[in-house]
Structure formats: structure tokens, C-alpha cells
Design a protein around this nucleic acid. Structure first.
Lengths: 155, 155
DNA sequence: TGGACTATCATGGGATGGTATGGGTGTCCA
DNA sequence: TGGACACCCATACCATCCCATGATAGTCCA
């Protein structure tokens, strides 16, 4: 299997460190990347994270625009300016910067949610709520599609 | 590979010195560049800065025009005339020339914003506004592209 | 089958080095 | 001679590194 799969809940210690789930570290190690590429999720109180592939994908989206165009300028401000490359220490932990913790409302524990090519980091309570909504939504969609069910997204 | 990423806010001391964020210095060192190549951003109250890659990008931009054409003259004068190579002292600091500080409205602290191949230096208040714009813009662009999944499905 | 041993992983804390920041001094030139 | 500038030193804080502890799962052997 490749890609980020399953969810893990880990605690932050007094220094603001969290262990990145070992399976996720393995995925990033396979991509050959030091550090976790992260940025605040656009429409959710969560942090998007990933490795080489994620960073590359974002770079490619920007490369569509002319280098000095206003479009490129403003998008690179949003993408790169809000991104961070978090270093993984010898024990597999990262330090979540304050901006990220505020954006996600994370205080003393964090949920790592695999999403294939990337993963997300949530505050446990908000993730539970979001998951309830997602299930409800999936249920209604599934009903409306009746038998045409693609392997229901979440694990 | 990975260029300038993340944002940092640093203070100017009484002599007008600011620390260039260590990760940015590392990027320029990797590019094999002494000093910071800088010029006032064309359409924004900010300073563009970077290393080898930025100089190269500007060179390519100018090379579009015939060497002795009027456009080339005007553009190269505008770019190079306002450019500076700021020396980095032993502690990783630069001195922002008055023209730059005026252009960006910088007084006692400055925000360094990574933009991949270059970075920008802003006055904190003005940057906050710019960042709002950038986020809003990114959101609208992302929505319109939302069917195109970055990093194609899985990794 | 059950129990002990082991490997992996999450977590906590101390120690250390890097980084940002402030200040001092010497030098060169207008 | 004064000011801009380069170079040097001091310090507080924070990130990183290293080691110790606990918990869990998996394995091996009696």
C-alpha cells in the first residue's frame, strides 16, 4: 500500500511536539523527503500535510501562471507564504507552529487523518463533528445513488 | 528544489538591521549566492528579494525583448537601476536602504514571505491585508479548479 | 495454549546549539 | 569630525538532539 491511510490520535507534549504516526512517516520516507510539508486547509479548521508529492503538486499548479504575473504573485503568497516544512526529529515528532494550532484549534492532542496523497491534522472534537457530518452526507448521497456505491471513502 | 517557504516576522534594530530568516539564508547559500538580490516590487508596497534564481528569472524576463530595443532599455533601467545586492553580515542580517523602507512603509519590523523562487519583505500591517486578499483569491481559484485533483488521486 | 521476550512506537524531560536581537568598536570617506 | 558601515561580542529564547520510560503488539518456545 502507498499513500496515507487510517487515522491516529496523538498527544502534544509541553513543548508542542506531536509524533507523526509511524505509517505516515514511512510513506514520506518512501517519497524521499525530509520534513513534512504543511499548510492550513482552505475551508476547514485543519492542517494539510504531506511529503514530496504534495509539494510538487502545488508547485505544478502555480507553474501554470506566468512568473511575474499578478496571478502568480498572489497565489504564491497564499501557497508558499502559508506553508511550512516541519522537521521531523529523531523520534518522529514535529512541532506544530502556533498559527497552525490556532487555525485548527489544537491544544493538547491531534488527529492525523489519511487521505491518500496527503493527510490532515485535526483537533479531535472538531474532527468528530466533521466526521458526523460527512457520514450523514455520505448516507444521503448513497441513498440517492441507491446501489451505485463506490467504496465508501472513509475507514 | 525547495525554495523560499513560510513567513517570518523580524524586528529592525536601531541601526536599521534585520535578520534574514535562517531558512532563507540557507536557500541562498545553496544557490551559491553572496548577498540578497533586492528591488522594489512593481505593483506592491513590498521588496522582492532572492538569490541566483531570482536574478536568472529577471534576466529571462528581460531577454524576451530585443537587446537594444526601447523596451529593453526601459525595463532594464527600471529593474536594475532600482536593484541592490544587500550584504549579509556575520550574524545573518541586512540593512534595508531608505528607498526600500519607504517603498514598503517599513519602520520597526518586517515580514519575510516565501514565494518559492523568491521572497518578499512587507510592513506587517500591509502584509496582513495582502494576505487576506491572497487567501480569498486562492479560495476562488481553487473552487474553479476543484474538479482537477492535485497530485492525481493517490501517491 | 499461554507466558515471557523483543521490537516498535508514543511520550516525557534534560542538555545543547542555533537564531534573533541588542549593543560596542574600529575604519573609511565625505 | 561625523556618519555610514563592517566586524565583533553578549544574551535570551527556542528548536533540536539525545536518552529514559511506558505501552502495545508480535514472536518464539516450552
Amino acid at each position: 500500500m502507498d499513500g496515507f491511510v487510517a487515522t491516529f490520535t496523538n498527544r502534544l507534549d509541553g513543548k508542542g511536539r506531536v509524533s507523526v504516526p509511524a505509517p505516515f512517516r514511512a510513506v514520506m520516507a518512501r517519497e524521499g523527503h525530509e520534513g513534512v510539508y504543511c499548510y492550513p486547509a482552505l475551508d476547514q479548521p485543519a492542517i494539510d500535510g504531506g511529503g514530496q508529492k504534495l509539494q510538487q503538486a502545488i508547485g505544478e499548479r502555480l507553474s501554470v501562471f506566468e512568473t511575474f504575473s499578478e496571478e502568480h504573485e498572489i497565489l504564491s503568497t497564499a501557497f508558499y507564504g502559508e506553508s511550512r516544512v516541519l522537521k521531523i526529529d529523531g523520534d518522529g515528532r514535529i512541532v506544530l507552529p502556533d498559527e497552525f494550532r490556532e487555525h485548527a484549534g489544537i491544544s493538547d492532542s491531534a488527529v492525523f487523518v489519511g487521505q491518500g496523497y496527503k493527510f490532515q491534522i485535526w483537533e479531535p472534537g472538531q474532527f468528530a463533528e466533521r466526521q458526523r457530518q460527512a457520514r450523514a452526507h455520505l448516507r444521503s448521497v448513497t441513498r440517492s445513488l441507491s446501489s451505485k456505491n463506490p467504496a465508501g471513502g472513509d475507514a
